[in-house]
Design a protein around this nucleic acid. Sequence first.
DNA 1: TTTATTATGGAATAATTATTCTGTTATATT
DNA 2: AATATAACAGAATAATTATTCCATAATAAA
Lengths: 190, 190
Amino acid sequence: MKLKDPDKIKAIHAATLQLVSEVGLAGLNMNAIGKKAGIGMGTLYVYFKSKEELINALYRELKLKHTSLIYHTVDMSLPYKLNMQLLVENYMKNRFKYFQEHLFIEQSVLSHFLDSTSLQLEVDAYAGIYALLKEGQRQLLVKDFPVEILAAQMVGGANEIVADAIRKNKKLSSNSIQYAFEMCWDSIQR
Amino acid sequence: MKLKDPDKIKAIHAATLQLVSEVGLAGLNMNAIGKKAGIGMGTLYVYFKSKEELINALYRELKLKHTSLIYHTVDMSLPYKLNMQLLVENYMKNRFKYFQEHLFIEQSVLSHFLDSTSLQLEVDAYAGIYALLKEGQRQLLVKDFPVEILAAQMVGGANEIVADAIRKNKKLSSNSIQYAFEMCWDSIQR
DNA sequence: TTTATTATGGAATAATTATTCTGTTATATT
DNA sequence: AATATAACAGAATAATTATTCCATAATAAA
């Protein structure tokens, strides 16, 4: 017999991400994925039994990967503000480096493709930042606002700054990251 | 002869907005629009000669409307900070009240449907906030960062706070708006 | 009131796109 | 080495969806 080729899955994923960044999720179709990935339709359907399953599988892989990556720098033995700074820097660099993946995630969430298990990952991703903000409030460093609002301000601001750089074909300079953290910190600090 | 019925256009627009909020732009189709709007396909194609044109027309109408609405409260004779507060409050209330319309705008921008004229409106919408931030810098009230970064922080934070309320089926309380402006101001003030 | 013109609904068709099918090829297992 | 099993390509088909067509109804203009 013959075994599935892990490289094919990677090729399918890569083709899907590139197509979505070119024509949007609304313009995505299976033929184009097969062609761009360099594989036949039969093969495509060996790996994913439907378009919906392909999108869910890719979404879950990416969402779990980035939820994990984002918190990699967090180290509770560090001073709180430094911890936050590393988090924001890491978060922004990740959004910039993997912007195609984040674009796919965002469009998937707004589509009718995702099932409830996939959507739950979106909620879970916030647990870490909520906990970190609560710790900041405990240390009297962070404003006494609902953590959902504090987190939304942080995430929204950082996302938009990265998105602006990408829209304008600029690189994400270390200055921009510094400015972003300064604004972020000023906005949440007590 | 017979004249086009303006109510039909409204019905088509409303049906489109509702469908996009239900199934995403990727799930939108002309049959569903006709059915939800209560009109036949022939009629639909009298008003819009293609799906692409329908999306562009609706996008342009909404983008122009909201770009204008957002700056309605601005009054340069007011103190700078108050002006900013009114802007942010107005901006957030608008995003909340017309969230379906903003959802449609966001998904359209990421799709392959919009032509360059439509996309230009996206760029134009930032002129007002950039000008306002420059004035704040002139008065030494606002941080000396690039206005694109300051604006991105303001817009991104406000958008995400509203989006969070909508995702969680909460209302946009006046407290939330107050918190949002306090964070916004702290983030940009010198 | 008559007429010409355009809107209207919905069925028919065209176009696109998801999925399946078939023959073939590669390769684990014996 | 032989065999069985599953991957593979791409053509064929099914399903969906955009668009057109046509018969009819409404109404502005004469």
